[in-house]
Design a protein around this nucleic acid. Structure first.
Lengths: 342, 342
DNA sequence: CTGAAAGCGCTTACAG
DNA sequence: CTGAAAGCGCTTACAG
């Protein structure tokens, strides 16, 4: 027997299509007794709504905005590209994604951009946010206007963002610590830690997780104070180079932010590649090469394609009031060695 | 301006809706000149087909069959459960998945089941296949009948399956070898390798990759001949137990198949947990525990949820003649340490 | 080789 | 609080 439609429901419950729709979509203004009748019919006929038909009738359009600090950061550029690609791929489903570039490390501008978003033009926002009072307030304001916001890559848990699309960054830090500890088994010495900025929550959390594991499980490895490279290759090369010169006894490096081209340059200039165990983040083209030639030992990665798709699915679910499949939307911490490179 | 519809196209090209549809779906029987006109109109109006409307009009139903050797294997049971869950979640999109249990290690039965599939009732097949002439022929026969087949978890590359949904198993083996080599840095000794059956392509490939890395990069680690446990905890406990008793100098174990409950039991009985570096596959409940309590050092995993969803998406794309997003459909080799457990 | 008309299963004003 | 009717953008027999 074919599957039940709204017409079948209407007949079975003795009401009109409009009433069926009101009950189905909880629009209210229906007598409890009528609701009851309809719900019984739904159960009896095992009714399941046809999404395609609903989409068509509703003429729903999803206009999502992705705010990404593209700048010089390869990972962010990949993320932006994936979002743009998604927009094309899903045009047939009436989903469009506008990628807006935001200046990196500029909370005020970001807040201004968020506040300037046109509600009639955007049905959801994904943002690589920084944790700042103005930014938080701007997110909350969008949420109040009924525009769902998801944070991307770095979370702002205190805000009213509906969801976070990204990895568990303290788990990533712990993983880096554990790999470092195992790869350097039996040795003791200093470990350098390079971040982009300790004003970024994701960087802080990675650092926290890393320190925690080293201190509790590998006390022979002593971390130096974090240095910051602003995710910028040139700055990274400078600050890391200076550190390496100051501490010739460094045996490990955890690069938990961007600007890894600077890491590679600094290491190569000192012929230190291979003698220092390096764990870095994000499988960009240059990191990939460094992994293959042995300069890096492991890369922790978050897949920008998955993150873009996840943000899109989550925003759509939020717009439709549908549930989110947590299993599917959990972004995993990929570990890459030379041997499992894609 | 609102997006163009088939009506707009028809008006612009000066033809009827039926002709538009013929050109859009390449049904043939249209004069080249007419096709040309329509295609120009499409380009001019930037026409993009509305999937929801097409789905509704076509009354397309996707009836997929997933053939899984559920047996005693926890991973396979998880895979089957995920497929069942998908069926519910996607009922609104007219996708149904029938999960059929196949007997493990029984090529003839599997071939018979494949041959017995009712073409009118199934629009695509996903199968955890074994590499056997009869099975291959059965797959080819389905492909000839126009029913797309994807292989799941273990591939049959010589067949006419349209796609493989699973990890690169020799890369997984290499990864295990590399982790083993690094975790045992500086030590030398024997490494045990436990498979389910060397008649399974995925197991053979993992073994190959593992051996390759150990022999070329870690010559101080010497692998013993593979033992087979048929993915069955009880058998695994026996054969591995016997091996451990025979070789008290084993310092590492690569468990590349199922039945890891048997591995845990054999190690615990001999108080060998922790002293032997263990790398296993699939993050099932017991493996997870073993990772946390230190019996296992790392788990390589393929996410059954991702695999089920990927198989479903690929089968749908094949049914519709749509392209496959290779980036999205690549199944990754997850590496889990205690620190990045989900 | 081409077209007119009906229909897919929903939602949406609008009227009462 | 409820209903009749039109419409969303496609596809599909059927007729010519």
């Amino acid at each position: 027997m074919a599957r039940a439609t709204v017409h079948d429901l209407a007949r079975a419950a003795g009401v009109s299509l409009a009433t069926i729709d009101r009950v189905l979509n909880r629009r209210g203004g229906v007598r409890p007794a009528t609701i009851e009748k309809v719900e019984q019919a739904m159960a009896r006929l095992n009714y399941r709504r046809d999404m395609a038909a609903a989409m068509l009738a509703k003429q729903q359009e999803y206009r999502f905005v992705f705010l990404v600090p593209i700048g010089v950061n390869t990972f962010m550029r990949n993320l932006a590209n994936e979002a743009t690609r998604l927009s094309d791929l899903n045009a047939a489903d009436r989903i469009s994604i506008r990628v807006v570039e935001i200046p990196p490390f500029d909370d005020e501008k970001l807040a201004a951009i968020l506040n300037g978003l046109d509600g009639s033009d955007t049905s959801g926002v994904a943002v690589v946010a920084t944790e700042n009072a103005q930014v938080r307030q701007a997110i909350d304001r969008l949420a109040e206007r009924g525009i769902p916001v998801v944070t991307l890559v770095s979370d702002v848990p205190a805000s009213r963002r509906a969801h976070f699309v990204g990895i568990d960054n303290s788990a990533a830090g712990r993983t880096a610590g554990s790999l470092m500890g195992r790869f350097l088994r039996g040795r003791s010495g200093r470990i350098a830690v390079l971040a982009g900025s300790m004003l970024l929550r994701d960087h802080v959390e990675r650092h926290f997780g890393f320190e925690r594991v080293l201190r509790t499980e590998y006390p022979d490895l002593v971390t130096l104070p974090v240095i910051e490279g602003r995710d910028n290759g040139a700055i990274v090369e400078d600050v890391l180079g200076a550190l390496l010169d100051r501490h010739p006894d460094i045996i490990g490096l955890y690069s938990l932010g961007g600007g890894n081209r600077g890491v590679i340059a600094a290491l190569n200039k000192r012929h230190a590649g291979g003698r220092i165990c390096v764990i870095a983040h994000e499988l960009t083209a240059h990191c990939r090469e460094a992994l293959i030639d042995g300069t890096f030992d492991a890369i922790l990665n978050q897949d920008p394609g998955h993150e873009a798709r996840s943000a899109m699915r989550v925003l759509r679910a939020l717009t439709d009031g549908q549930p989110i499949d947590q299993g599917q939307e959990r972004i995993r911490i990929d570990i890459y060695l030379r041997d499992n490179l894609p």
